[in-house]
Design a protein around this nucleic acid. Structure first.
Lengths: 124, 124
DNA sequence: GCCCATGTACGAACGTCTTCGTTGACAGCG
DNA sequence: CGCTGTCAACGAAGACGTTCGTACATGGGC
């Protein structure tokens, strides 16, 4: 079967809500999205229908208000997005990407500690 | 003035060529792009014209064959792309992004050393 | 049984990205 | 001078992504 496609911008915004909240109805997603993004109810509904067709979400239609759930965990989708950017813009060099990330968003002390821990894990 | 917009996929592919080769004609970009990407000559031309309008490239039209040049250095564009992804998919957490990057493309020894060096710089 | 609130479904419109055919300019050559 | 090859410019078409109006279904309260 075809691998799940990368989410578009709007789709990603919706996935964030589903990852934060867990399985949700269109109404719930729409309300949560309301803070920061002005978008109509039917727009969210349409997006979720498309995402369901694409396999990005799963739909439980047993109730009158359908309940949508992200089909892939946040980490896996993030990994796919990073991998895509890595190929398109960095020629696969992860150290270059890490460097740009640190420049773009200065890591605080906690972040630095966390990153060092990750390096230990991956470094062997 | 409006900040330079993020390059699209096709635009980024062209920018990679310009960054690698330096200022180039449409023909040169088209040939270099040929390996790996089958795209018509006029397509590359059109893209470069659009990119010129957007301010992504600069054009020297003094010769019959116009010469195009990336207007921003590779690093700066990469930083903008990473920042965008950081906001859209990671809620700004650079450590999460770094973690996914390491998972997606296992860094080799040289990469690890390089990343540790970057941490030292940013640490303090 | 009717109406209203709440839902889903559908389709159209619009913008952007990408693609390329076609046209016209122009330089060099015979 | 006219042909040929190279080039920029333009316009149009097709694929997506996003938006939302409108239509239709349905369940609960009166």
């Amino acid at each position: 079967m075809a691998p799940t496609p990368l989410p578009t911008d709007g789709e990603l915004a919706i996935l964030q809500v589903l990852w934060d909240r867990g399985p949700s109805t269109v109404r719930e997603v729409h309300e949560r999205l309301g803070r920061g993004r002005a978008v109509g109810y039917t727009t969210v509904l349409k997006l979720l229908q498309i995402m369901n067709d694409k396999g990005l979400v799963r739909r439980d239609a047993s109730e009158r208000s359908h309940v949508y759930e992200a089909r892939l965990p946040r980490e896996r989708t993030q990994r796919a997005l990073v991998k895509d950017l890595l190929q398109r813009a960095f020629g696969g060099s992860s150290s270059a990407l890490v460097q740009r990330a640190l420049e773009a968003a200065p890591a605080d002390a906690a972040d630095l500690t966390e990153i060092r821990r990750l390096l230990e894990e991956h470094g062997t």
